[in-house]
Design a protein around this nucleic acid. Structure first.
Lengths: 197, 197
DNA sequence: TGTACATCAGTGAACGCGCGTTCACTGATGTAC
DNA sequence: TGTACATCAGTGAACGCGCGTTCACTGATGTAC
């Protein structure tokens, strides 16, 4: 069975199920730790059916990355909006550097879950990853301090990767107390460094 | 040929060559992107000889990680010592967040090169990774601001992963100007946040 | 000093296994008349 | 409304390939006498 485009409604739903299964699988098991069989099993299907929806395995990651980054940005923005004015950036920081986020990489930040693997991807894959990251930064840059919008964006562009690095470290630490402490100290540090406007 | 311990001087030199070839290969290609054949080829040998020095592939990564982390810590400390007092933490930050470091992951920080892969390793592998990271933090904590040694260590424990996250992001960015700018803004930010004592 | 043998430090072909991918097939659904 | 056929949305066995690992082998070096 060769890959072919289809517009059937059932097909479209299945395709979306595969993409979001992949988005979780990649973040939990790493890009090179996930096989077609794994993903299809998560989606409740068998390996052969994959090629009805996608030309090959490489076509999947970009779509999964898009799915995942949209999810995180939306979640952070919701938390920010739910917080009172003056506490919104704090809410983003506290949500990102939460134990909840640390313990559930499958539904969390791609940069933290896959950053060092993505950094080794080829130019094209990295470019599309950057595009998505930029869209996400634009969406949250408004909550950052800075005199101009460029400055706010640049502050966001420094803070987000820094928090990703801390989250990665908190996932590496084997001592739960040390991991909790790192998150707490980092939340304090970043909140003090980027005072809410 | 089964694996056996040997104390011959030639054997010991070869073993070290394999370990440092692996340390570079892992950081350049990722943990799961490197095979026994790759590593032995880098060391100028063939795949079979690997099992004269190691029981299996899993025994290699811990040694390679040790080799790599010692190298980075030594380099950062040298740069700090070479700087005038009052500019030493700045020297660590500037060295870590340099274009040089970004462009040569093979001889750089393991956390930046492999962090998100290591975070998925089992408890035992992560524990030995943490142990080494702690030793490295202790060695450089003296350059950090803080009233007590615990405070200085905690500051180091927040800064180092934050810088790792920024370095990862700078490697993902495909636009060289954007990547350079991110590094520059991050150097300024961290230097301002952690004033030299 | 020369010779015989043992050990060292590898080589490289071959193995089983899991992966991405292909393909003949199948049951369910849609369409024509 | 019933029947015949086409298309959809998969299934699951089989493929070639690269990986970690094994193993029979080999040339160089060390040791005994």
């Amino acid at each position: 069975m060769a890959h072919r485009k289809s517009a059937g409604a059932k097909s479209e739903r299945t395709r979306r199920r595969i993409v979001s299964a992949a988005a979780a699988a990649y973040r939990e098991q790493g890009i090179s730790g996930v096989g077609v069989r794994d993903i299809m099993k998560r989606a409740g299907l068998t390996q052969g059916g994959f090629y009805f929806h996608f030309p090959d395995k490489d076509a999947l990651f970009p779509e999964a990355a898009w799915d995942a980054s949209a999810g995180l940005a939306t979640m952070l923005l919701e938390r920010a909006e739910a917080a009172p004015p003056g506490k919104r950036l704090q809410a983003i920081i506290d949500t990102y550097l939460s134990r909840e986020h640390r313990d559930h990489p499958g539904s969390g930040c791609m940069m933290a879950a896959l950053g060092s693997e993505v950094a080794r991807n080829d130019r094209k894959a990295r470019a599309s990853f950057c595009e998505r990251a930029n869209i996400m930064l634009e969406r949250i840059a408004g909550y950052f301090p800075g005199a101009t919008s460029v400055e706010r964006r640049q502050n966001a562009a420094v803070l987000m990767p820094s928090m990703a690095g801390v989250l990665i470290a908190s996932r590496v630490l084997t001592d739960p107390a040390a991991s909790d402490l790192l998150l707490e100290r980092a939340r304090e540090f970043f909140a003090a460094s980027f005072p809410d406007t």
